[in-house]
């Protein structure tokens, strides 16, 4: 009897995880904008809800999950904000970085995405706001560079984004990690022990 521990090829992970979940994140972004419009920050929610999905995806699938967030946000924001450089560079790229930072915390502190222990929860609760804050700084810096916000709006943007993103991640992401991680671990797409 032999145990078979297969790993999907990089090509498969790129196509399946980043592609398919890119579609899921895009749908989430699309509906978040329509459903939960934020006064004064139209489209802001388009980043928040998918964030909850790609944080979980990145803890499961590493780089490929983060790419799904990036692609998904880009596509999902498209009908409202165009498939423009700005969307690609700000939110979408920010959404790529944030979950990878969270994953780095999990690897550094050897936490389990199943969130079984107090330590797992502690790492989750600390890493998410830090990651989203860093992403928010980047996103608003790009918006500022493109001229769509002023520097004054940068500070408020970062604060609002960090709170909004973190709340969404804690609300939906926690459920996802608790419910599905055990099952995902048995799939050939699960990436363990590596940042990328």
């Amino acid at each position: 009897m032999s145990e078979v521990v297969t790993q999907a090829s990089i090509k498969m992970k790129l196509a399946i995880i980043s592609g398919i979940f890119g579609g899921v994140c895009a749908t989430a972004a699309l509906f978040s904008i329509i459903i939960i419009p934020l006064p004064g920050i139209p489209g802001g929610s388009g980043f928040w809800i998918p964030a909850a999905l790609y944080f979980a995806l990145t803890l499961w699938f590493g780089l490929y999950g983060a790419l799904a967030g990036h692609i998904g946000t880009f596509i999902g924001m498209g009908p409202f904000f165009g498939w423009t450089f700005q969307v690609w560079a700000d939110g979408a790229l920010g959404d790529f970085m944030a979950p990878l930072i969270c994953r780095a915390f999990f690897l550094l502190f050897k936490a389990d995405p199943e969130l079984k222990t107090r330590r797992d929860y502690a790492v989750w609760l600390v890493s998410v706001p830090i990651a989203t804050c860093l992403a928010a700084m980047w996103i608003h810096f790009v918006n500022y560079s493109f001229g769509t916000i002023t520097f004054g709006a940068w500070v408020w943007g970062v604060i609002a984004y960090t709170i909004g993103d973190s709340l969404a991640v804690f609300t939906i992401g926690t459920i996802l990690l608790r419910v599905a991680t055990k099952w995902v671990k048995t799939s050939p797409f699960y990436v363990t022990g590596r940042l990328l």
Partner: peptide, 11 residues
């Protein structure tokens, strides 16, 4: 290309 195509289509 397939990744992008799948992402658009599955949306």
């Amino acid at each position: 290309a397939l990744m992008m195509s799948l992402a658009f289509r599955t949306t």
